[in-house]
Measured scan of single mutants.
Amino acid sequence: TETAWISLVTALHLVLGLNAVLGLLLLRWQF
């Protein structure tokens, strides 16, 4: 079960990281 939790947490971190990068790019394009 630990491996499943680790994979789930890493997936969440990757998604949050991608969202942060996309958000910064969108803000930079708007201004």
Rank of each mutant, 00 (worst) to 15 (best):
T1P: 12
T1S: 12
E2H: 10
E2F: 01
E2M: 00
E2S: 02
E2T: 03
E2I: 02
T3R: 07
T3Q: 07
T3W: 12
T3M: 09
A4V: 05
W5Q: 00
W5I: 12
W5P: 01
I6H: 01
S7W: 13
S7E: 06
S7C: 14
S7I: 12
S7H: 04
S7N: 06
S7F: 14
L8A: 09
L8C: 06
L8W: 07
L8Q: 06
L8Y: 08
V9T: 09
V9M: 13
V9Q: 08
T10H: 01
T10G: 05
A11Y: 01
A11K: 05
A11C: 11
A11D: 10
L12T: 08
L12A: 00
L12K: 06
L12F: 13
L12I: 11
L12V: 06
L12E: 07
L12W: 10
H13Y: 15
H13P: 08
H13I: 15
H13T: 15
H13D: 08
H13F: 12
L14M: 07
L14I: 13
L14H: 00
L14E: 09
V15P: 01
V15L: 14
V15K: 01
V15E: 02
L16F: 06
L16W: 08
L16C: 14
L16G: 03
L16A: 11
G17L: 13
G17S: 08
G17P: 02
G17Y: 03
G17Q: 09
G17T: 11
L18A: 08
L18H: 10
L18K: 02
L18R: 07
L18S: 07
L18P: 08
N19F: 01
A20E: 07
A20L: 14
A20S: 06
A20M: 12
A20R: 04
A20N: 01
A20D: 10
A20Y: 08
V21W: 03
V21D: 04
V21E: 09
V21I: 13
V21M: 12
V21L: 12
L22D: 06
L22R: 08
L22Q: 05
L22A: 03
L22W: 11
G23Q: 01
G23R: 10
G23V: 15
G23H: 00
G23T: 15
L24C: 13
L24V: 11
L24D: 07
L24S: 04
L24W: 00
L24Y: 03
L24A: 13
L25N: 02
L25I: 10
L25C: 15
L25W: 13
L25K: 00
L25A: 12
L25H: 11
L25P: 10
L26E: 09
L26A: 08
L26S: 04
L26K: 09
L26M: 10
L27Q: 00
L27N: 05
L27S: 01
L27H: 07
R28Y: 09
R28K: 15
R28S: 06
R28W: 08
R28F: 03
W29M: 15
W29I: 15
W29N: 15
Q30I: 14
Q30K: 14
Q30M: 15
Q30T: 13
Q30W: 13
Q30F: 07
F31C: 12
